[in-house]
Structures are given as C-alpha cells and as structure tokens.
Design a protein around this nucleic acid. Structure first.
Length: 234
DNA sequence: CTGTGGATTTGCT
DNA sequence: GCAAATCCACAGG
C-alpha cells in the first residue's frame, strides 16, 4: 500500500486533456483565440504549476501576404528562432532585455513559421509556489502573479535553456497545453502591446473582463465569438 | 495613479 | 553599436 501510494504520488495527475498536435496546424491568428481558456501546465520536481491562458498575441510568419516585421521569424531562421520554423506545437522561449524570458506556442502547417506569444495567465494550480517564484507573498493578488509575458515565465519557472523547443503536445513532456473543459465563448481583439513595428495589426486576443489580463485599460477592441477547433483535444 | 530609467541577451546593420 | 514581443523601483502629483 505504501509502495503504491508512493508511485501514484510520483506520477502527478494533470488536469484536463492534452491538446492534440492538429490543434497547432493552423495560422497564429486562428490558434491564438482558441488558446484562450486553455491550461499551460508545467510538471516540476516540486509539483504541478498551471495557469489558464487569458491573453495572447499572434506573430505572423514570413510566408504571409501581410508582412509582420514585429515577428522574430520575419527575416527567416536564425539560431535563436529556429524552433518557430520546425514542427508546430512546441515552445519557443527567448530572452529579452538580458534578464527575462517570454514563451510562445509554435503553430502553422509544416514549412511555415507562425507563433503565439502567451501574455498572461490566471494562476490555477500551485498558486502559492507561483507567487513564491515571483518573489511575492503566497497570498498575493492573482493578477500580480502571471500578468505579463515575462512574469508568467518567472511564475511557472520557464527558461530558454530548459524549455526552448519542448514539445507541448507530448503526454511525457514537462510542459503541456491542456483543456480542462473551461469554455471561453467570447474574445476581444486589440492592437499588440510593447512593439515598435506593425503596431496597427489587430493580433492581440484576451478574455474580456478577466482580472489577470495585462494592461486591462487598453482593452478597447471588437468582441467576437471564439470558433472552437473540433480536433482540439483528444 | 502616472512616468522614467536601468538591467545587460541576442542578432542584425 | 544598438534596438528589442519587459519588468521593477522609484519619483512626483
């Protein structure tokens, strides 16, 4: 009994269902709103950390008719961005300003290079640990824990050396995207934040009214219903 | 509440 | 050399 118990504890039970690879074989402007409400789950030694995605931005690959000079893939593959050009459903993690990390979900069919930047999470599992990773008190307000692309990497303890290129659609992966049945029916579209190029493109998507969305004052945009991908979860 | 400047990786000009 | 898909500390109203 003790042995069985120990084994079950070791195999941490993850919430919901893993997203299938086919979920990611679509352009970023379609994948981005579909990611709203899904769980980003990190299996760590200390336990499971997970947050619900409440804000994302799409970055378009160089094959598009509409150029996206703000996208890292815009000028073709480099050592930094090469995972964007590989199979969809992987994590692209990059460092910014020398001190922080940001995490993207790669998408598009084979041979094309789109991705979705995850900008904010609502903490769901391991909330106290996530707060601790950010240097906050265990009972810190939810919106201070993972609202911002680098904040969420800190909260979930995601880094480029450990997580760049990790498969998000593999049941054995430490980092997964999962669907726990939460259904977001409506999204808001706005301009993207914190960029200098292509600032007018409406490629930022968020859950309207969610307190964990970053820069909630700039949430003026059109609302639209989210079209679910029927192949989304297995 | 708002605005400003510093930290110091990566890749391009 | 410099700009960048950022965050935080701190100053001022």
């Amino acid at each position: 009994m003790q042995r069985l118990r120990a084994k079950e504890d070791k195999i941490a039970r993850l919430p919901g269902r893993l997203l299938r690879r086919s979920f990611f074989f679509a352009p970023p402007e379609q994948v981005a709103p579909r990611l709203l409400g899904k769980l980003l789950v990190h299996k760590t030694r200390a336990g499971v950390l997970a947050g619900r995605i409440v804000e994302v931005e799409a970055y378009l690959g160089p094959h598009n008719e509409q150029p996206d000079p703000a996208a890292h893939s815009h000028r073709g593959p480099t050592p930094r961005n090469r995972v964007i050009f590989e199979t969809a459903g992987h994590a692209y993690v990059y460092s910014i300003y020398g001190r922080y990390f940001c995490m993207n979900v790669t998408c598009e069919p084979e041979g094309q290079a789109g991705c979705v930047l995850v900008r904010a999470l609502e903490p769901v599992i391991g909330v106290a640990e996530m707060a601790r990773n950010r240097g906050l008190a265990a009972d810190a307000p939810l919106r201070e824990i993972a609202s911002g692309p680098s904040r969420l990497c800190q909260a979930l303890n995601l880094t480029r050396p450990r997580h760049n290129g990790v498969d998000l659609a593999d049941p054995d992966s430490p980092l997964q995207l999962r669907d726990d049945g939460f259904t977001a029916t409506e999204a808001v579209v706005t301009k993207r934040i914190g960029i200098r190029h292509a600032v007018e493109l409406p490629l930022r998507f968020a859950l309207p009214g969610n307190a964990c969305v970053s820069g909630s004052k700039s949430l003026t945009g059109k609302r639209f219903p989210i079209e679910e991908n029927p192949d989304g979860s297995e």
